[in-house]
Amino acid sequence: MNELYPIGDVARRTGLSVSAIRFYADEGVVTPSGHTEGGFRLYDVHAIARLELVRTLRDLGAGLDDIRRVLAEQTTLHDLAVAHLRLVEDQLRQFRARRAVLRTIVRQHTTTEQVSLMHKLASMSDDDRDQLITRFWDFVTDGLDVHPGYVEQLRDRRPHLPDEPTTAQLEAWIELAEVVQDDQFRTALRDHLHRIFGTEQGKLMTSPEMMAHAETQRQLFLEAQAAQQAGVPTTSPQARDIAERTAAHRAEMVAAMTGRHDAAKSRRSMVDFDRGRAAELRARMTGLNLITRYGALVATINGTPQPDPERTTTVQEWLAAALRHDPA
């Protein structure tokens, strides 16, 4: 015989209040299995199981109509979970955006006008973000007389906010969106590019040949970086080989740009690398710092390694030490 339990026992078993159980009965969600002679409600184990399911679904945010359809087998639990998961994920994205805005407000001296702007930036669609970055590069490269391939390379440096960004990624996007709309930043970067590439030699730097040289130099640097981070001694044949190939290619790169091949000078410039002078040069290069700032924000948003001048300096010192070492 199926045992029936009074509503007080059902409340203790399910964790629901007596008033909640009555509410679900009055709403026709889970009706009593029977009544006592005095009219008190009784529930069997099947009704208790249904009430436990109702409580779980309610805790997960499901509405009464959805729960009724599940209990009536008009929809499956899986379908309900899929639909509700989509809703919860959308809410999570909104909460992350709000948290990023609030954290930015706390960190900065934000005006009331900026709050609305930041919320708008955090809530942008993928298309809106892409158009904002496109307008930025349109402005920065307008009238830049260089090889089209180089312009495309610049335009490819853009953020791709993931579907589930972290707060740090959203904060970086808010900052980047403000930066690319800042007239002073945009104008300074545009002036820098026009100044650097406004000469014949500057235009040559953007040619496919020079871009190929730059890529080779980058690959050599990455090889040196991997060896340095792996602890390869600067006195080893491996370090010497990497450093010599880097110096030789640097001489080829300079020759392609100037028409003069001077391997000894190229090698000497690497051997004489000085951390202090390099830092001073970076500090004076306003345009480079603007690009570095843009690149750092994009790297945070995309989840890729950050530009690191200190890491670059360490590798250059490693290469210089390898070239200075005399195997004899």
Rank of each mutant, 00 (worst) to 15 (best):
G231N: 06
L132R: 02
G61P: 01
D138L: 07
L117F: 02
R186C: 11
E73A: 14
A255P: 02
Q201T: 06
A227L: 10
V101F: 07
L60Y: 03
A224K: 04
D145T: 10
Q316C: 09
E310V: 07
F136D: 02
D191N: 07
R12C: 12
A328T: 03
Q201E: 11
F273Q: 08
R324K: 13
M257L: 15
I174M: 12
R129Y: 01
A320L: 11
T314Q: 15
A243V: 07
R157L: 10
H213T: 01
H213V: 03
T313I: 11
G303D: 01
S116H: 10
L117H: 02
F185D: 01
R86Y: 03
A296E: 10
A81F: 09
N2E: 15
L80A: 12
L176H: 03
R155M: 09
L102A: 12
D145I: 08
A321Y: 00
A226M: 14
D183R: 15
Q114H: 06
R158W: 05
R98A: 12
Q131Y: 01
V298D: 02
A188W: 05
N2Q: 12
A320G: 07
L323G: 02
A299G: 04
P237Y: 05
D183K: 14
R86H: 08
E52N: 03
I48C: 15
K120A: 15
Y150E: 03
V146L: 13
P237I: 08
Q94V: 02
P148E: 04
H147C: 08
T216F: 15
K265A: 14
Q225S: 09
K265E: 10
A62P: 01
G34L: 10
R12P: 01
P237L: 13
I7M: 08
E244I: 13
R267D: 11
V70D: 11
R190T: 06
G231L: 11
L85C: 06
L117I: 03
L102R: 11
A72M: 08
T75D: 14
Q228W: 11
D26Y: 00
E175H: 09
R311M: 14
T199K: 06
H35P: 01
